[in-house]
Design a protein around this nucleic acid. Structure first.
Lengths: 340, 340
DNA sequence: TTGTAGGCGTTATCAT
DNA sequence: ATGATAACGCCTACAA
């Protein structure tokens, strides 16, 4: 019986235990042709008895790792956690293991995280809300099957994308506010690398389009803050203290909207009476009574599930790109309702 | 020039480019002895020119992967995100890459996630808030260097632990409530696998000890809910609607406390006047005005940094166990203050 | 149907 | 100081 350095049984151990060749074991593992039921049974029994599991590194040398890299730049936002849940659920029962790498801004850059994933031979990548330039995305996708979530480039042949219609999400919000008779609707957005397909960009566009659609083009106002919570808070505080304060604030995401709620409360401005506030993402915190934040649901978990499905299809051989666009849905709560 | 299947340069490509042997390149990569400055320079130049990076799978076959597995059962709680931030920060500039695996309850079990990590030859594990039995933890730690965060077993020789003093955290909360003249202090805890070293268990103990310390042993009341937000909400609603409603609720973590705030608001019970509410973890949401939740800081990011430091030390050769216990710190906010 | 042999990219041992 | 060589565990032609 072969004794291995690691103490783990190897394919060799199993072969000896079952009294067959190593390749026989391998064939059983890969569900390959040319193994008799009897031989298979013996091998399966040995595998079970020895508690054998193939070593990913060795497999990687010959092909696949059964490992997916999931890339995110931030995970404090529950939006990312929801996506990950969706991926995890979809991968249940498959041999694939998703592993999350986080590129904390200012720490590890996104590109070096991608390199780390490539070095580790991930079978595929799910990349959430990328910030780097489009050419890097294409270059990456040509090296390894990649699905982008929260990044729009429906024309790309190199990769799949899975998104909610972010323009429409913002439009739904504006339409709702307008239907309440509000006109001075400003938007709080975020400083983000200026990419055409970036989510903040599209949400800003949707806002502007909707405003124009209602004849409010003169009232269009988009303000940008850094991503940090304190910056969002400071910006909101400035806006709310203005004499010509807007009647409503559309925040580019829930995190910003929750900060806005906080600032409004701090300075004693009533929501929604003095100012209505709307977020986008419809994360779990919106539901809490102290927030009761109107928000546009972007079905983050569904995004994750779809992304996983796309990648499975790719690994199963699909070569043409697919681009999925889910319908957003408005959830009205107290932060923007008349009888709030 | 060797052409590789993957299109990536290999150590062989570099060797040929630099006109040296593969072992020479390897030695440069590993900072091994016996390479002349001149040879090293040539190799380094080739590595840079070819943009060569070693393949992790191949390295794994010979030893290390420079990859750490981080295990968590849930990531919606920002507590986990903070820990991960701490790990990431500490690992900046090191060759190690942390990758997060999530064992969503009811989906993938924790044990199978551990197996996935072992199959992928992680150099080390950081395991946050494990739920499985202690013997599994020991068995795992004997296979691969492991640091546990948010799990107490200071006597273990097999692994390191990094924690805040969870008993004391709960005590601080009770002491504070008691100092406000409150006596009927109940605790909302969670159904959790009944492990001696589990965080909910210790926080419950700390609560009970503090109550006894103040002569309030007859008022000790610990209620348990499932982890899901709706369950916490339902339990809180029941408690708040009781005629003999407690004067204060100590929630085992912030997530539960935020739900409690929500329910209180829903049924029109004023916080803190009618009931004071305290959480533990001091996650970012406590700061928001609409929550203004008193909470005990457990320095999650510090936990992450310490865990990373412990694991680095292990990989550098330390063989004796270390157990770190940070001091918690109370942060009083409106949800428990007299002039709230 | 089954087994043999070679190689994936890297590191470590041992000659030179 | 440098280089040849042998593993590591697995998969896949190909041979029996």
């Amino acid at each position: 019986m072969a004794i291995e350095r690691t103490g783990r049984p190897t394919i060799r151990t199993v072969a000896e235990d079952a009294g067959v060749s190593r390749s026989a074991v391998s064939k059983v593992l890969c569900n390959a042709y040319g193994v008799s039921p009897e031989l298979r049974a013996r091998v399966v029994a040995s595998i079970k008895r020895l508690d054998y599991r193939p070593q990913t590194a060795a497999r990687a040398m010959r092909g696949r790792t059964f490992t997916w890299g999931v890339l995110a730049s931030e995970i404090h936002n529950p939006f990312f956690a929801d996506i990950l849940s969706g991926i995890g659920r979809k991968l249940e029962g498959t041999p694939y293991q998703p592993l999350l790498g986080v590129s904390q801004s200012s720490h590890e850059t996104e590109s070096s995280l991608v390199e780390a994933m490539l070095d580790r031979q991930m079978d595929g990548l799910i990349w959430i809300a990328p910030r780097v330039t489009s050419d890097i995305l294409h270059a990456t996708a040509r090296l390894v099957p990649t699905v982008f979530v929260a990044y729009h480039e429906a024309g790309s042949e190199d990769f799949d994308t899975v998104n909610v219609d972010d323009e429409k999400a913002a439009q739904l919000a504006v339409d709702h506010l307008h239907s309440m008779g509000l006109r001075k609707i400003s938007m709080i957005s975020v400083n983000w690398p200026d990419r055409v397909g970036a989510v903040p960009h599209l949400r800003e566009r949707g806002y502007a389009m909707a405003m124009r659609g209602h004849g409010l083009q003169d009232l269009i106002e988009v303000m940008h803050s850094e991503e940090s919570a304190v910056d969002v808070g400071a910006l909101t505080a400035r806006v709310l203290s203005r004499r010509d304060r807007p009647e409503a604030l559309l925040c580019w995401n829930d995190a910003a909207a929750l900060e806005a709620l906080s600032e409004a409360k701090r300075v004693g401005i009533d929501v929604p009476h003095d100012v209505a506030i709307i977020g986008i993402d419809n994360t779990a915190f919106c539901r809490l009574e102290q927030n009761s934040l109107t928000s546009v649901d972007v079905f983050a978990e569904g995004l994750g599930e779809n992304a996983a499905r796309m990648l499975i299809e790719r690994l199963d051989g699909r070569t043409t790109a697919k681009h999925i666009l889910l319908e957003p849905q408005l959830n009205v709560r107290r932060s923007s309702s008349k009888n709030g």
